[in-house]
Design a protein around this nucleic acid. Structure first.
Length: 292
DNA sequence: AATTATATCAACCGCCCCGAA
DNA sequence: TTTCGGGGCGGTTGATATAAT
């Protein structure tokens, strides 16, 4: 059965957006804000589907989109987050300010996945390809057919399968956290939640996107689980936006300054290492903490 | 220079979640 | 409680760019 399409696509433009359409959409959203995507095209004078408008805005026109190549730091973070979260691109994107889920997804599929394979690592399981895979069900079965009619049903049945594992309670994914609402905040203010605990990637000289100062949030670990290695890992801004704002107690360690990413990675490594020893328990608790 | 193969990524699709009626 | 619709997600496509022959 399925839902009716979001709009009758009759008479609507499709394909690449023209500069004029971009301008119309941008001006409308600047004046009226995001949302009401279905009615937006008509009001904005666009012959586009509402979903198309939303996608264009989210993935291309938003003022906080970070242009330029993915830096090695981001690169590494994506890999590690993918190991924890699987193909939940919006969640991963929520940890990479200025990056979109679509961009990360594309980057994964075109670069990282191949790189991992070339390094002898299964990009789905993040284990060595020679290792038997057991107990990890998050990776989905890849479709091999290119027939559209088949693939969609096939995919959709798999799509949620890894999210609802039989032996585990159902996890409802949170909406991804956009770092800020960009209409209300100028770009430079987007990540000023804690200027002393951010890492300036440019400072690392890692071939970033050029002129933009990109600051990643530092991360806060809650080391109060059994052996103090895993626990929570959330972006600082998430205390306001993701973790219900107020009653989130966790700052047992706050990494600040230039080494925060390195420390973060070390913790990740530790977590991944422990995964082998502790049958995924800590990893899952960590991953689920991101989903709260 | 022309052709073919491969890589990239913006855009689309269909499904699901969740809040409102 | 059920239905409906908006919004969001992940998978995939296809046009374009680039590299290789």
């Amino acid at each position: 059965m399925g839902r009716a399409p979001c709009c009758s696509k009759v008479g609507l433009h499709r394909g690449p957006w023209t500069p004029r359409e971009d301008t119309l959409l941008t001006k409308y959203i600047q004046a009226h804000g995001e949302g009401h995507w279905r009615s937006l095209p008509k009001k904005a004078g666009l012959l586009r589907c509402g979903k198309s408008c939303r996608l264009r805005w989210m993935n291309y026109l938003r003022p906080d989109i970070k242009r330029g190549n993915i830096t090695p730091d981001e690169d590494d973070l994506i890999i590690r987050l993918h190991a924890l979260l699987g193909n939940r691109w919006s969640l991963i994107a929520g940890r990479l300010p200025g990056r979109t889920d679509n961009e990360i997804k594309n980057y994964w599929n075109t670069h990282l996945s191949k790189r991992l394979k070339s390094q002898g690592t299964d990009p789905n399981t993040h284990r060595k390809l020679s290792e038997p895979v057991q107990g990890r069900t998050r990776s989905r079965k890849k479709t091999t057919t290119k027939h559209k009619n088949n693939k969609k049903k096939h995919n959709s049945s798999n799509k949620r399968a890894f999210m609802v594992q039989p032996e585990k309670p159902k996890v409802h994914l949170p909406k991804p956290v956009r770092v800020t609402s960009l209409l209300s905040l100028p770009r430079n203010e987007s990540f000023e939640f804690n200027t002393t605990s951010t890492t300036n990637l440019e400072g690392g000289g890692l071939g970033s996107s050029g002129t933009e100062d990109v600051q990643l949030p530092s991360y806060v670990f809650n080391g109060d689980d059994q052996n103090g290695t895993a626990g929570f890992l959330v972006g600082v801004h998430d205390h306001h936006d993701l973790v219900n704002g107020s009653d989130f107690e966790c700052q047992s360690h706050v990494f600040t300054g230039e080494n925060s990413l390195e420390k973060l990675y070390e913790e990740y490594l530790q977590i991944l290492k422990n995964e082998d020893d502790h049958d995924q328990v800590q990893l899952d608790s960590f991953a689920e903490s991101l989903l709260i």
